[in-house]
């Protein structure tokens, strides 16, 4: 669904990246090289304190590194001004958090369509995929195996698992190049976790997006194209030394 050229160039590339929070002496992130290819699904294992949140903030251009270069979908994030970075994030990234992804005062459909309010690109891509925003929303929700009568329901009536699947539908609408999922399954029970990841895989593939899946739970890692330990790539991490480092194929 994306431009065919994107399959060759990486979706995310980090080079010599170092980031230090203000008023701290030690960097929290120091990454030599880390890349995600187009369409690749990467499992990033990161226990708390390993700089996981900082890394995601860097990738989503909320903060800029003091050194190094981050490229997302061919765009150098450092070259962007604040407003352009916000626009870029809205256009190219789909985010799913641990929980509370949805605005309680909007309906399910409105929540799913939220990125289309802020990104013209996401809107037009969503309209390419479906005849109308509503149809595309229905399609995505259906693909996430949610009942069709869910559209106008208030989100507070949904179970946590349903809420997370709505969040995925929102991240996927308008086919952003990179989906970032930060511990999206930690509020789910084990059976639901596997089912959730299965759906996520299918739809990320259907949308032609890449996936960066962050979790501390390595039992979820199977099935990903690649597993990366944040402690391994981040030489600035403090809590990661004692962990068993495992490289994924």
């Amino acid at each position: 669904m994306n431009e065919s050229g994107a399959t060759r160039s990486p979706i995310l590339e980090m080079d010599q990246v170092s980031f230090t929070w203000p008023r701290q002496s030690q960097p929290v992130i120091a990454i030599d090289h880390f890349a995600i290819a187009a369409g690749e699904r990467v499992f990033l294992r990161g226990p708390s304190g390993s700089g996981k949140t900082t890394l995601l903030s860097l990738v989503s251009a909320v903060i800029l590194p003091q050194q190094g270069r981050i490229t997302v979908d061919g765009t150098d994030l450092q070259a962007l001004e604040g407003r352009q970075r916000d626009r870029f994030r809205a256009d190219h990234l789909g985010l799913v958090f641990q929980q509370f992804n949805l605005l309680p005062f909007l309906s399910v459909a409105e929540n799913v369509q939220l990125p289309c309010r802020f990104s013209q690109r996401r809107r037009s891509q969503a309209l390419q995929s479906g005849a109308s925003l509503r149809q595309e929303t229905e399609r995505l929700l259906q693909r996430m195996q949610l009942p069709s009568d869910i559209l106008e329901r208030p989100v507070m009536q949904l179970s946590v698992g349903q809420q997370q699947r709505v969040a995925v539908a929102r991240a996927l609408i308008g086919c952003p190049s990179l989906i970032i999922a930060d511990e999206p399954t930690s509020a789910l029970d084990r059976d639901a976790q596997q089912a959730f990841i299965g759906l996520l895989f299918d739809e990320v593939a259907a949308a032609g997006s890449s996936l960066l899946f962050v979790s501390h739970d390595e039992t979820l890692a199977s099935g990903f194209d690649r597993q990366v330990d944040l402690g391994q790539i981040n030489s600035a991490g403090s809590t990661i030394r004692e962990h068993d480092l495992r490289e994924a194929g």
Binding site: D86, L95, L114
Partner: peptide, 16 residues
């Protein structure tokens, strides 16, 4: 704050 964070993650700018 959560509401703001959700809006931001869905692409809302601080200006929004």
């Amino acid at each position: 704050r959560r509401e703001m964070a959700i809006l931001r993650s869905a692409g809302a700018r601080p200006l929004h």
